[in-house]
Design a protein around this nucleic acid. Structure first.
Lengths: 147, 147
DNA sequence: AAAATTTCTAGAGTTAGCTCTAGATTTAAC
DNA sequence: GTTAAATCTAGAGCTAACTCTAGAAATTTT
């Protein structure tokens, strides 16, 4: 009916130590145990794990995730807090997105530069390519010119 | 002519300790020093710092970044290795992007759920909303149904 | 029912990436 | 020229998030 810790580990890729660690940290307060003390995970628990992974992947520290779970346990009096948390997290995510797009430009430039360099057998000569120089200038155009 | 460590710290937001730490780890091998031993950073050094930030932000550990710098120092015999590194990094970045898009859906669902919950004063009642239930089903549709 | 595997708890150890401290030296401000 | 601020080195300390160990108990496989 429920999943053993090993099965959950395989399903989620998380490692049994990690699962127990999360539980110890208060991130999985609903996991139940058999009469002999073995953990059994429900589908609901798997849902929580998915949620944890999502928040972790979007940069929330485990303490922040615990806060959310504590609010959840506290009940409907914390609804606005939880909403605000998710809204803040969405903001984070959008920042990450634009960050990634910037980084992608940088990496793309480097890839083209090194393709040229491999082709010419020399980074120096690749750097002299007019097209690549133009691209580099554009890339560094969003620098602050201060102090 | 060059920047002091404090100026670079302000420019990059990195903290003087961190800058010295990066240098100790071999990530900034070109920073020069005045006759009395103070670091002076050139614009080229700032470029390296930008590169470090970019690779770090895309999930490369400092050791990997050091590897790249070592290859750079080694010269044109490592051009292909460096190209491959950037190509792998681009792959990483694309994975991150699709990951973020998944997470965004999850967060968006949660925001709508909690908006409804705040409006109704109850998470339970929000969960009964037909529209939100449909959305939830869609979200969890990409689950593996195995083992 | 014996052997092999999985799980348990409590606690120690690890890794990455900073972050800080102390005491000395250098530089900038008044 | 004195104070105040910034920088130096070497090394210690810190935090987050695991990751592992040991020895016992439970479960599964043979």
């Amino acid at each position: 009916m429920g999943y053993s810790i090993g099965q959950v580990s395989k399903k989620t890729g998380l490692g049994v130590h990690t699962l127990r660690y999360y539980e110890k940290e208060g991130l999985l307060p609903f996991v139940s145990k058999t009469s002999s003390g073995l953990r059994t995970y429900s589908d609901n628990d798997l849902g929580w794990i998915k949620m944890i992974e999502c928040l972790k992947a979007t940069g929330m520290p485990l303490k922040g995730i615990k806060q959310y779970i504590d609010w959840f346990i506290e009940g409907d009096s914390t609804l606005t807090k939880r909403l605000e948390m998710f809204e803040k997290q969405k903001q984070n995510l959008e920042n990450q997105l634009s960050q990634i797009q910037n980084n992608m430009q940088m990496i793309d430039y480097k890839i083209r530069l090194y393709q040229k360099a491999v082709q010419l057998g020399s980074l120096q000569r690749a750097n002299q390519d007019k097209e690549l120089q133009k691209e580099k200038v554009k890339l560094f155009a969003n620098e602050q010119i201060d102090n």
